[in-house]
Design a protein around this nucleic acid. Structure first.
Ligand code: MN
Ligand code: MN
Ligand code: MN
Ligand code: MN
Lengths: 218, 218
DNA sequence: ATATAAATTTAGACTTGTCTAAATTTATAT
DNA sequence: ATATAAATTTAGACAAGTCTAAATTTATAT
């Protein structure tokens, strides 16, 4: 059996490696969880023993296929529960992450599959992140930052690269929710802020910081 | 913060004291969980330190008001999730207990309240057990065993006092599900088995054992 | 009123996941 | 090519929850 802690490390390694590629460092994990590097080293040894990661002293870690499958399964559950919380229980998109952090560790294959069906096999979670299917396959949409659009280019808001509640609430209040059609009117050279037209109507200016963390499909 | 383990002990003490009254013994808990009495003693000290139980060496334990409230909250969540699993995800009544054992430990007041609302504020779980309301109030129905009915007395199946999957599946297969109207035709003196008429139509004979564990409202 | 038996607690130990402090390895900057 | 600095690991410790074996208390049966 895997402990909650083990599952959380696997997820962390998965996310820190930007969805598979890079090697993850001990310090990267220790900073994410706010625990000491020494504790991380201990756990990495354990995960390596269980064939969940590839680990060589001082060289950082990558997930094994088994480890990746496990991480993706947890992520699948996390995102399905987030959909449940928003679609069925009426939570806002900034309120669901912490609860899903608990629910993602409930280990019942049949529960996950039935939840998926109950929700209508959603493809993305409330933040636009793709939901892995039951085989662990992930459909990555091509998303680009608003800050990288050309003048007059349009797109549909489809994700965020920053998930803090404070940012999400700001977006919601400003009408920058998933599915909103935007056109970039101008990037102000001075400070990188972006002027947008929402749904061909409302105009709004957002900071470079915000424009960097809102993702659109073209 | 309370650990899963602490919550499970509180639930156990609550249930072993038959819903509040009696003192619970160390051995009672150790047998229920299949752990040693020594381990139980250790945990009882911890729960007493946290003011969750009243504990005097060698004298057994009772829940404090605080401990009882905590136990009831966990039971509320357990039963609400069981309703969810059956009503929304299509599980059978014999399949939900183990999953609910995990879900009951997700601690979010707002989640519990919204789940309750989503489910339509159910009063009983799939096994007929009452669901405590958000204030911890429990509406106990007056239930009697089939084995204690008089000849020709009728009742509606409304609960079970044995929750094993094997018993629940047997009941379902035999049509002895919640809401079924039964009439006791006769108790066979020889072995205590009971002849019933279901919904005024079908006849069935069940063992004394079964008749002892099916509960009806008159 | 004792002597057994049963129940419970204590003592000492192990695992998990964490910590601090010290040692070691790798990276960086002259 | 070295000397620092940064990253990582090792060593030793602790709390939680469990265990076994031994000691103690309470119950029961003459
Ligand atoms: Mn999340
Ligand atoms: Mn999400
Ligand atoms: Mn149950
Ligand atoms: Mn139940």
């Amino acid at each position: 059996m895997r402990s909650f802690t083990e599952e959380n490390y696997l997820k962390a390694i998965y996310h820190l490696s930007s969805n598979e590629k890079l090697t993850v460092t001990t310090n990267g994990i220790s900073e994410l969880f706010n625990i000491t590097a020494a504790s991380v080293t201990d756990m990495l040894k354990k995960l390596a023993d269980k064939q969940l990661i590839n680990y060589k002293k001082y060289q950082g870690v990558t997930l094994t296929n088994f480890g990746r499958d496990t991480a993706v399964e947890v992520i699948r559950k996390h995102r399905l529960w987030e959909v449940f919380l928003v679609e069925k229980l009426g939570f806002k998109w900034d309120e669901v992450h912490d609860i899903a952090e608990d629910l993602e560790h409930v280990n019942s294959k049949v529960l996950t599959e039935r939840l998926d069906i109950f929700l209508g096999n959603p493809k993305v979670d409330p933040h636009g992140d793709p939901i892995p299917d039951k085989y662990g396959k992930i459909n990555h949409q091509k998303l680009v930052k608003i800050s990288s659009l050309k003048t007059n280019q349009t797109g549909t808001i489809s994700g965020v690269s920053e998930h803090s509640a404070i940012f999400l609430r700001y977006l919601e209040k400003s009408g920058l929710i998933l599915g909103t059609r935007i056109e970039l009117s101008e990037i102000i050279e001075f400070d990188g802020s972006a002027m947008l037209i929402l749904d061909k109507k409302r105009e709004i200016t957002i900071s470079r910081e915000a424009a960097n963390n809102i993702l659109v499909v073209l």
